[in-house]
């Protein structure tokens, strides 16, 4: 119970600080917007191929934006050594991870939902008929990105060359999530939309495995 109550208190803090400054949300929204707009000029939005490429471009943009968003996740805790204060205050250190990965998932999901209409218009891809399934893929993909990214952010925050280390570790690790999410999204954006359940199953397994690993070993990632 104290794990969940501590996580809820910390999640409140994460949301309050972000919505007060809007640093992460603004940066990622602008970043994704720039990528989507740039790529929309290079593809013919009426062709069938555009639908196939559009899904991968969308996830690539989300992935790069996520690496931007995840970088300060633990780095911010180092400014005033607040991570030590958190570790001394919580009964279960996993609650720190739970709060951060839930916050990161929410921020990513919010950014993605804000960008979907823009993507739909610029690439001439109707997303609203499959919005329910699309939100499910976005959620599972974003959760996978957040779980792995939050863990790596904790590692990289204590390392030298920390700005370089996170994307270096994150991008190869998330390649399977990117592939699975893209495959499912391609199916959903097809002229006759279909759900690639194999991809959904893979995302669920990826999220479960990494969440379990974080629960088992997360405490060691927070040590100096």
């Amino acid at each position: 119970m104290s794990l969940l109550s501590n996580a809820a208190v910390l999640l409140g803090k994460e949301l309050r600080t972000e919505f007060r400054s809007r640093e992460l949300l603004t940066t990622t929204v602008v970043f994704i917007l720039v990528i989507i707009v740039l790529f929309s000029f290079t593809f013919d939005p009426t062709s069938v191929e555009s639908r196939r490429f559009a899904a991968s471009l969308l996830w690539l943009a989300f992935l790069f934006a996520a690496s931007l968003m995840l970088q300060p996740c633990f780095l911010r805790e180092q400014n005033n050594d607040t991570l030590s204060a958190l570790r001394l205050s919580v009964t279960d250190p996993f609650s720190i991870f739970v709060a951060k990965l839930v916050a990161n998932t929410l921020f990513l999901l919010l950014t993605e939902l804000l960008m979907l209409p823009v993507f739909s218009i610029l690439f001439n891809v109707p997303v609203f008929p499959v919005i329910g399934q699309l939100v499910l893929v976005l959620f599972l993909g974003s959760l996978g990105v957040s779980i792995a990214g939050t863990a790596l952010s904790a590692i990289s925050a204590q390392a030298r060359m920390r700005e370089l280390l996170l994307p270096l570790l994150l991008l190869p690790l998330l390649a399977p999530v990117l592939v699975a999410s893209t495959q499912v999204t391609v199916g959903l954006l097809d002229t006759t939309p279909f759900m690639e359940w194999k991809g959904i199953g893979f995302l669920v397994i990826f999220d479960a495995v990494f969440l379990t690993a974080l629960w088992l070993f997360g405490e060691y990632l927070l040590e100096e």
């Binding site: 109550s5 501590n6 208190v9 910390l10 803090k13 309050r16 600080t17 007060r20 400054s21 400014n79 005033n80 050594d81 607040t82 030590s84 204060a85 958190l86 205050s89 919580v90």
Partner: peptide, 18 residues
């Protein structure tokens, strides 16, 4: 070991609740 982006009261409330 306190958050610059929170108020004095929010900081103490956060740690008191934890």
């Amino acid at each position: 070991m306190v958050y610059d982006e929170l108020t004095a009261e929010e900081n103490l409330l956060l740690f008191a609740r934890l």
